[in-house]
Amino acid sequence: MKDFKVGIVQLPAKGDKNHNLEKMEEYVNKASEMGADVVCLPEMWNCPYQNSYFLKFAEKEYDISYKKMSEVAKKNKIYLVGGSIPVKIGDKIYNRSYVFNRDGEEIYRYSKVNLFDIEGFKESDTLSGGKSLGVFETEFGIFGLAICFDLRFPEMFQRFREFGAEVIFAPSTFLVKTGEKHFQLLNQARAIDSQCYMISPTIARDDDLSRNAYAHSLVIEPSGEVVIDMGTEPSVEVVEIKAEKVKREREKFPLEKSRENRKL
C-alpha cells in the first residue's frame, strides 16, 4: 500500500435529482482541488433516504447519475467511490455503488448485501439485496467496499482482510437515533477487527428531506483512533491515508498469525 489523500463528501440529498448531481460535481471538484487522489460519496447521495424516493429516483444501469460520476472522475483524474444510488435491473432495485478510475472507467461495483430492515422501516419493501462481496485494486493498494448497515456484520470485514484490503470504504446514511449510539462505535470496531482504515462518508443533515440524517462522516485509523468527524453540516474534507499506520498496527497485533495458530 502507498500513502494517498482521500476526499470525503458530506452533502444532503434533496428531492431534486438534478440539484443533487450538480452539488455532487461541485463537491468532488473541490475535493480534487484540495489534493484528493480518491474521493468517496455517501450512500444514496442522489436520492432522499426514503422508500418512496428509491422507487421514484431509481435509474437503469449507465443512466444519468452513472454517466455524471464517470465524467467527474475523468475530468478530475481521480478515483471515485460513488457512494450508492438506487439502480433498477428488471423488476428489482438495488442499493448499488460504482467505482471509477482516473479515466472515468468503471472498475468495480457492489450492491448492498445486508438491507436495513428494522422495526418501523424496511429497505426490503423496495430494494433487493446483493449476493457478492469483493475488493478492488488501485495503484495505492487494495480496497474493500461495504454500505451502511453492512457495518453490523463483522464477518464481512474479516473477508475484506482475507482478500488483502488495507482500506475499507463504507458510505452510509445512519439515522440520528441509531447513529448517536452506534455509528462511530461500529466504525471503530470494524477498523480494529480488520486492521484497516475505515472511510465512511454520510449524508449531511438539513431541515428538509435529510433532517433525520445523523451525518458525522468518519475516517478511522486501523488502531480505532478517529482521524476526523465531519459533524452535521455539508462539507468536504481531505485526509492523508498512511500506509505505515496499517503496517505498524498489524505488526503490533499479528491477528492473522493467531488465527493460523488456532486452526484445527
Rank of each mutant, 00 (worst) to 15 (best):
R211M: 10
M34Y: 06
R109T: 14
P154R: 08
L186R: 07
F153H: 11
L175C: 02
P171G: 01
R159I: 15
V239I: 14
E105H: 02
T202G: 02
S172M: 05
K30S: 07
Y53W: 15
D208Y: 12
A13Y: 00
L145C: 08
M156S: 06
T138M: 03
L41M: 12
Q50L: 14
R259M: 12
A243K: 09
M1V: 14
E233L: 15
I85Y: 00
L115E: 10
K2V: 11
Y66C: 10
L186T: 07
M69L: 07
K17W: 10
I220N: 00
E25P: 06
Y53D: 15
V6M: 09
N18F: 04
R259E: 06
F140C: 10
V81Y: 01
S223F: 10
Y98L: 09
P201M: 01
I8G: 03
V226T: 15
V72Q: 08
V6G: 05
A13V: 04
W45L: 15
D103N: 11
N261I: 11
T178I: 12
Y53N: 15
I199M: 05
A215Y: 02
R161C: 04
M156R: 09
F143H: 08
D193L: 15
V176A: 02
T178P: 04
K252Y: 01
N51G: 10
E180F: 03
N212G: 09
Q184N: 08
E249D: 02
V9Q: 00
E233F: 12
F174K: 03
N76D: 02
K181L: 09
Q184F: 04
S32P: 13
V81G: 04
I85C: 01
C148W: 01
I89C: 04
Y98P: 04
N46Q: 11
A170N: 12
Y79V: 13
D63H: 10
S32W: 05
E119W: 04
S97Q: 00
T126Q: 07
T126L: 09
N212L: 13
V28G: 01
D125W: 04
W45S: 14
S210F: 01
A13D: 00
I118Q: 07
Y27S: 05
Q195K: 10
M198Y: 01
D117P: 13
E155Y: 13
K5M: 06
G120S: 11
K56D: 09
G144M: 12
A73D: 03
Y27N: 02
A165F: 01
E240M: 13
D193K: 12
D16C: 10
N46Y: 06
G15Y: 05
K88G: 07
Y62H: 07
D125G: 08
N261F: 06
I203S: 01
K56E: 12
S111A: 15
